[in-house]
């Protein structure tokens, strides 16, 4: 087992990755699940339609055949009890990985997450460990409408005791999911549904990527773009657009929101003096609001311009594909925000 350094798993340039092969994002997740299940008999999967069907997005496809119905357990549509059961199994030493079919459905399990999973360790005087992973297919871009398209991660940043992980690349998806499964705390693992279809190179063999370490996607001196999950890919594209105009953007992919690697962000902002924060979630009270304040707390004197945010506006996600595409941040929006900053 090796831990892959940030530099080795950068999305680009791919030639920098030594031994590697191409897989879909979903396959990278599946590899992580299978490897961890082989490694540790306490790891098992719970969720709706994860067995024969292979999960709504195919992430658990094939796992039933290898691990059987006790370890790849299809459940009734009962998100609250499902997550509560994962908590109960976890405190007895099991390592459940729960798939919530759409992150939007996490609303149904909030009590068990907030009042139980996140608090048992603290309120029971550190007797409890709650090693569970809640895999949450999230985000818009597929015209699923308002209740199947949300990015709700900001809620969980407000719950001490939870960790929040949101990979942007297939390589990170595998390495971070493995770390999440091995972590002794409840982890909200966000999988952007649009990324599922991306096919990317990942390192050969087993590797884990530690939680809490951001990834510098590309270096630049004029402006810092901070993002995570699918938006890190949009930020990467924005950097390409900006480069064509002679603007040098540094892109930071946070990878995990809790714990937050604010050090890497601050280091970059100290260099560039300008920062654009990007998230797919809605604006008010979003992850960027927190990150922005932390930048200000740590590095206000490095800022040469106001912090800019690029987010989805404060609306439910509309269905019509054209409307949806218009409200979700894209590379052009990020580039425009960065351009405006550099011009100030």
């Amino acid at each position: 087992m090796m831990e892959v350094a940030a530099s080795e798993v950068r999305g680009a340039p791919e030639a920098a990755v030594p031994r590697a092969r191409e897989v879909y994002f979903t396959e990278a997740l599946q590899e992580a699940l299978a490897e961890e299940m082989r490694r540790d008999p306490e790891v098992f999967l719970l969720g709706e339609d994860i067995g024969v069907y292979g999960g709504c997005f195919g992430v658990t496809r094939g796992l039933l055949a290898e691990f059987g119905p006790e370890r790849v357990r299809d459940t009734p549509i009962s998100e609250a009890a499902l997550v509560g059961m994962a908590v109960g199994a976890a405190i007895l030493g099991a390592r459940p990985v729960v798939e919530v079919m759409f992150m939007d459905f996490v609303t149904l399990a909030m009590d068990q997450l907030v009042n139980h999973a996140a608090k048992f360790r603290y309120v029971y005087g550190e007797q409890a460990r709650v090693p569970l992973v809640l895999r949450c297919p999230a985000g818009a871009g597929r015209a699923y409408g308002a209740t199947h398209s949300q990015s709700l991660e900001a809620w969980f940043l407000h719950v001490p005791g939870l960790k929040v992980v949101a990979p942007a690349t297939a390589a990170d998806a595998k390495g971070l999911l493995k770390s999440a499964i091995r972590d002794d705390n409840p982890v909200i693992f966000i999988e952007n549904k649009v990324l599922y279809q991306s096919r990317e190179r990942i390192p050969e063999g087993e590797y884990a990527i530690p939680l809490g370490q951001a990834r510098r996607v590309c270096e630049g001196g004029d402006v810092t773009l901070v993002a995570y999950s699918r938006m890190a890919r949009e930020a990467e594209r924005a950097a390409v657009l900006l480069a064509e105009e002679g603007v040098s953007a540094e892109v930071i992919d946070l990878r995990t929101l809790a714990p937050l690697d604010i050090g890497t962000v601050v280091e970059s902002v100290a260099k560039t003096g300008r920062v654009v924060l990007v998230e797919e979630g809605t604006r008010t009270g979003g992850a960027c609001a927190e990150i922005g304040v932390q930048i200000f707390e740590h590095a206000w004197d490095s800022l040469d311009a106001p912090i800019r945010r690029v987010t989805t506006p404060d609306i439910p996600i509309p269905f019509a594909p054209e409307l949806e595409a218009a409200v979700i941040p894209a590379a052009a929006d990020i580039a425009a925000a960065a351009r405006a900053l550099v011009e100030t």
Binding site: F44, E70, A80, A81, L82, V83, G84, M85, A86, V87, G88, A89, A90, I91, L92, G93, A94, P96, D111, Q112, N115, H116, F120, Y124, A128
Partner: peptide, 23 residues
């Protein structure tokens, strides 16, 4: 396995503990 401040909150926790034992 704990007293619980949420009415009914312990019911799925107990059920999950039972699942762990069964496994």
């Amino acid at each position: 396995l704990g007293s619980n401040g949420i009415t009914g909150g312990g019911i799925p926790v107990a059920t999950g503990a039972a699942l762990a034992l069964q496994r």
